[in-house]
Amino acid sequence: MSSRLSLAIASLTLALLAAPSIQAQALPASQYYGSTEYISGGIGSDEAALFRLARKTYPLSINFSANVGERAGYVSDVQLVIRNSQDQTVLNNLIDGPYCLIRLQPGAYKVFATYQGKTQERSAQIVDGQALEINFMWQ
């Protein structure tokens, strides 16, 4: 092996060893409203990426954003209320990030999201084995 190649391999090895290690990140801990499990967060690009990857494993994922000037930006501190087909509240909490992943049983739901005093409503049909994504955007 040539001395240049050996030097290049040694330099590359040292650079890799000196590079900061990437720590594995995890989603925030699950929270519960009654028996409904949910996870909220997604502030920061690393955590947002985790939420986007994980949303396929939850029956319902909800994203919150608002127009800020000429751009749309993600928002937090959204009051989220979900009611089942019997009009029973299965989730009612202040969501502390732009993403919320929710484990719901199959069925029909009404989803209400309130941000800065403005409430929007969506219908959600949860089907076993399928992931549904709902986006709320305030003007």
Rank of each mutant, 00 (worst) to 15 (best):
Q31P: 00
L91I: 13
Y115E: 00
Y32R: 07
N93I: 10
V111N: 09
L91Q: 13
I102W: 09
Y58C: 05
F64G: 09
S45K: 13
T119C: 06
R103T: 12
Q31I: 01
E121A: 03
L27I: 08
A124P: 02
P28R: 00
N93C: 10
L101C: 12
Q88V: 08
Q88C: 09
F51K: 03
V78S: 07
C100N: 10
N63L: 02
I9W: 02
V68D: 12
Q116S: 02
L17I: 04
Q79P: 09
G129P: 03
Q125D: 02
S40H: 13
Q31R: 07
Y115T: 01
A26G: 01
T114V: 02
N67C: 11
Y74P: 10
A10N: 08
G97P: 06
G97K: 01
S11N: 06
L16E: 04
I102S: 03
V90E: 10
D77M: 14
L104E: 02
Y33G: 08
S21M: 13
G107K: 04
T36G: 08
V81R: 15
V90F: 09
S21A: 13
S123G: 08
Y99C: 12
V75F: 05
F136L: 04
G73I: 09
L17W: 09
T13R: 11
Q31T: 02
S61Q: 04
A8C: 00
S35A: 11
A66Q: 15
T36L: 15
D87Y: 12
W138A: 01
E37N: 13
Y38G: 00
Q130Y: 10
S76H: 03
F112D: 15
Q31A: 05
A131C: 06
V90N: 10
Y115C: 00
F51H: 03
I126H: 06
P59R: 07
T89Y: 00
G69N: 15
L101A: 13
D46A: 15
I134M: 04
T119E: 14
L7S: 14
S40I: 11
P106E: 07
A113L: 06
S35L: 15
Q139W: 06
